[in-house]
Amino acid sequence: MKDQAENLRRRLEARQNQTMARTIAVLSGKGGVGKSNFSLNFSISLSKRGKRVLLFDMDIGMGNIDILIGGHAPYSIIDFFENGCSLEEIITVGPGDISIITGGTGLMNLVSLDEEKYARFNEEFSSLMKNYDYILFDMGAGITHDSMKFLLCVDELVVITTPEPTSITDAYSAMKYIHSINKEIPCFLVCNRVFTSKEGKETLKRLQNAFLKFLDFETVGLGYLPDDRTVSKAVSKQIPFVLFNAEAAVSKAIMDIATRYANHSFGERLTLPKSHFLRNVKKYFLGK
């Protein structure tokens, strides 16, 4: 009886201490900057740090996660909205012990949510959020009217850029648009395909200074990834680069980024608000 009481107490304490997953949208101002590759390998890196991660491929019509891992998920979010599957049923176990949901035309289903669909989505996603530490949404390149609504729902944004001037300009424009509607959402910056550490640091600093000067908006430079041939080799083998060669420079760099993010070692200046993802979905998609 004593053991049973102790087990019950532990279960109750675990439930009380249970936290909801952070929802993170990974986006870029333009295509071709390695956004999906970052989303996949960042998810795996967080998993290697003991975090429970669900990766949601929201790149509608051009989802790359299946291609990068050399597999095809049997279900997508469409099966949840149209075929009666539960969210648990459409989850695929991915490499590095992460969970994956394929988006298909999932964003369009969210846009057309009615009260009944929202109630079902709210109930199941609430349960899902208790099972993970992070839920990452790999968004399509650029911003549409509908994807903008979704970006306003998540807890945090990770913006991917490269040192190319057009990529920097597009990343700034995307964040300017988002900031014009929501000035509170935390934003992290990652620079991909840098040739030197100096180039990576300068690119991040340039973007951060532009946000601060013109938008009065403080962002966090999360880190940068080197232009490493390991990435193209891993893509051709359809293996995430952090698993293909853990000793490669790019793999070590993304593991460092994941550690920094998971440990919140990016300064005291950023306060991460409580998650209101589902409340925001109701607000922006149902107008309530």
Rank of each mutant, 00 (worst) to 15 (best):
M1Y: 06
D3G: 06
Q4H: 14
R11S: 15
A14M: 05
R15Y: 10
R15E: 14
Q18N: 11
T19G: 15
M20W: 12
A21W: 01
A21S: 09
A21N: 03
I24D: 00
V26P: 01
L27V: 10
G32T: 01
V33Y: 03
K35G: 09
S36Y: 00
N37P: 00
N37D: 01
S39M: 01
S39R: 01
F42M: 03
L46A: 04
K48I: 04
R49V: 13
K51M: 07
K51P: 03
V53F: 02
V53E: 02
V53Y: 01
M58D: 01
G63D: 03
G63S: 06
G63N: 03
N64E: 08
D66G: 03
I67Y: 03
L68C: 06
I69E: 14
H72A: 13
Y75C: 12
I78F: 14
F80E: 10
F81R: 08
E82S: 11
N83G: 09
L87G: 08
E89L: 06
I91M: 07
V93R: 15
V93M: 12
G94M: 01
P95N: 02
I98M: 14
I100D: 14
I101A: 10
T102F: 08
G106S: 07
N109M: 13
E116S: 11
A119E: 09
R120F: 10
E123L: 15
E123C: 15
F125K: 05
K130A: 15
K130I: 12
N131H: 11
I135D: 00
F137G: 01
M139A: 02
M139W: 01
A141N: 06
V154I: 09
L157Y: 10
T161A: 11
P165I: 00
T166M: 02
T166Q: 02
S167K: 02
A171F: 04
S173Q: 07
K176C: 14
S180L: 10
S180G: 11
K183T: 06
E184M: 07
I185T: 02
P186T: 03
L189K: 08
R193Y: 10
T196F: 04
K198A: 13
G200A: 05
L207A: 00
L215W: 03
G221M: 04
D227V: 10
T230I: 03
T230Q: 09
T230C: 14
S232L: 09
S232Q: 11
A234N: 09
V235H: 13
K237G: 00
Q238K: 11
F241L: 04
V242G: 01
N245W: 07
N245Y: 08
A249L: 13
A253D: 09
I254P: 04
M255K: 14
Y261F: 14
Y261G: 07
H264Y: 14
E268D: 10
R269F: 06
P273Q: 00
L286A: 12
K288W: 14
